[in-house]
Design a protein around this nucleic acid. Structure first.
Length: 349
DNA sequence: AATCTGACCAACCGCGTTCAC
DNA sequence: TGTGAACGCGGTTGGTCAGAT
């Protein structure tokens, strides 16, 4: 379709508006309304194109425009609406009286987007970022190179580091998936499209347990309850503050096939759930947990009644998760530091 | 004091849609 | 119904300013 030719016309002024031009535009619109924007500049005595006049009026001169810093409520509203509407700035602006789409767009690009990224969220999906995986090969390569430079037995070190990095990334991603969705906005209703898929969680849980086998293919049962502690809260107090610790309890009546149901229920934030095959997990009473911080109190530990050896030989070995949980918290206190930890002190290449 | 860098935001550009003829 | 002008919207640019080096 035809594009407006007005901006292509030569001889029309561009760039910042002067106070005199503003006054002409305001006075004309107050007296006559804007009518046809194309005809307005000539009628108002402005050497501007109609489009420029319209933008100046709608984004800056309109009397009902609210200027100044965005309030916490406005910020929250933008987050809510953006999680639903995406970059529909005009639609978002329609819910914020006095704010223009341009202003909201600028505020988003300069503040909110960065804020979400810092908190570990994808600003487009409002879900925890998973791009750790896409960058993992790069991280591992550099980490391996570091080992190579520092350690003569670099092959072994690199392999170990690779395994640890991959394991950590999986665990962190699993923790992200188990958060109550979505957390970028406390006002947003829980919508199913923010929930991780059952398969997604199942695959991660299985791969974690599988790779934690200490004695492969021996079917050694898990002999004592083991707890996966949540990682430390990040600097902003999110998102790990909502994460329960996971207690894996040996239970001969359960099978690994119950894990998808466990995972599914964990997403639902229920306090007590009975799954198939006598599988169950529950949130212990709050009295068993340390006193919560003033803001964003953590959920109490989550007990998972987990099976021991399974008929499925891929998953049937013992899990030594306590050391895993301990190392995870000490090596990478939060997800944002994983890359930092690996890159830290790496000489420039 | 000079230069650099990044944040901020008004304004522009260009595409898709709507409207009038 | 087809066409072109007008409009609306989202992405991008570029000027300004403040803080860091």
């Amino acid at each position: 379709m035809g594009r407006s030719p007005c901006c292509d016309e030569s001889g029309l002024k561009k760039g910042p508006w002067t106070p005199e031009e503003d006054q002409k535009l305001i006075k004309h619109i107050q007296n006559h309304g804007h009518g046809s924007w194309r005809a307005l500049p000539k009628l108002a005595g402005l050497n501007r194109c109609g489009k420029s006049c319209r933008l100046r009026w709608t984004n800056y001169l309109r009397p009902d425009i609210k200027r100044g810093k965005f309030s916490q409520e406005e910020e929250q509203t933008i987050l809510n609406l953006h999680s639903v509407l995406g970059n529909k700035w005009s639609a978002i602006a329609s819910h914020l009286p006095g704010r223009t789409d341009n202003e909201i767009k600028n505020f988003w690009n300069t503040h909110l987007k960065k804020k979400l990224i810092q908190m570990g969220f994808d600003p487009m999906t409002h879900r925890p970022r998973t791009d750790i995986f896409s960058s993992l090969p790069h991280i591992i390569a550099l980490a391996s190179l570091k080992e190579l430079m520092e350690n003569p037995s670099w092959e072994e070190q690199a392999l170990r580091l690779q395994a640890e990095a991959l394991q950590m990334a999986k665990f962190q991603y699993l923790q992200f998936l188990l958060q109550p969705p979505p957390t970028t906005s406390s006002l947003t209703n829980t919508t199913t499209n923010n929930n991780p898929t059952e398969i997604e969680i199942m695959n991660l849980i299985n791969s974690l347990f599988e790779s934690q086998m200490t004695t492969p293919n021996t079917n050694t049962p898990l002999t004592a309850p083991t707890t996966l502690q949540p990682l430390a809260t990040d600097s902003a107090g999110l998102p790990f503050s909502h994460l329960p610790s996971l207690e894996i309890v040996p239970n001969t009546t359960n099978t690994y096939e119950t894990l998808p149901f466990i995972a599914k229920e964990m997403c639902g934030q229920n306090n007590e759930v009975s799954g198939p095959n006598n599988c169950s997990w529950q949130l212990p009473s709050s009295s068993t947990t340390p006193s919560p911080p003033a803001v964003d109190p953590p959920l109490p530990p989550l007990n998972i009644i987990h099976d021991g050896p399974s008929s499925n030989s891929n998953y049937g070995d013992a899990c030594s998760t306590s050391s895993f949980a301990g190392s995870s918290a000490s090596i990478w206190p939060d997800h944002l530091l994983l890359e930092d930890a690996l890159f830290h002190d790496i000489p420039s290449l």
